[in-house]
């Protein structure tokens, strides 16, 4: 398992399962259009390597037979990609209008206080990162946060306590 914050190039390799999935994904596009799989492959890379360092992006470029800069420009455009190290557990709290009126700001302050970090920061042990994000399409179930592929909705301080205890 590569170190979470360092990606020595020699050790960079997707798992066999992921490589198989990537082969299926690239086959979904016409010949020569394999770059279309880039966004999905970057999601997979982030899942497997923790964040998108330059060596990771270069590796993805080699896999898809595109130039590294084509990967860099995409990785820096989309807000879901981390081009800097983040904690193992990333709490992404929605801050947009409908969540705000249901108390998102209080939820953010509560998490900041509880973890001793500010928006955008990671706890000293590298466990948790807090990030505020724009609308995630859960406006009727506000306030909410996303952690990995899971939506945590109707958030309360008690739910935050439980979540952090379960994931500490």
């Amino acid at each position: 398992m590569p170190d979470q914050h360092n990606h020595p190039e020699s050790q960079l390799q997707f798992s066999d399962e992921t490589l198989k999935l990537i082969a299926t994904l690239t086959a979904q596009y016409p010949d020569g259009k394999q770059k279309s799989a880039l966004l999905r492959v970057l999601h997979l890379a982030q899942l497997e390597f923790g964040w998108l360092s330059a060596p990771v992006m270069d590796y993805v470029a080699r896999l898809l037979h595109i130039q590294p800069v084509e990967v860099y420009e995409v990785a820096t455009f989309y807000s879901m990609y981390d081009t800097k190290p983040v904690g193992k557990v990333k709490l992404e709290v929605c801050r947009t209008g409908p969540c705000m009126i249901e108390g998102a700001e209080k939820i953010v302050s509560y998490i900041e206080q509880k973890l001793g970090i500010k928006d955008g920061e990671t706890t000293a042990d590298g466990r948790f990162t807090l990030k505020t994000v724009e609308c995630l399409g859960a406006c009727g179930y506000a306030p909410m946060m996303q952690v990995g592929e899971h939506y945590h909705e109707h958030l309360t301080e008690e739910k935050i306590d439980r979540f952090i205890a379960d994931n500490a």
């Binding site: 999905r40 989309y78 994000v133």
Partner: peptide, 12 residues
């Protein structure tokens, strides 16, 4: 017909 699903990555 072939049908596939593909993700964005956080961009309104």
């Amino acid at each position: 017909l072939d049908l596939h699903v593909t993700p964005g990555a956080g961009a309104y």
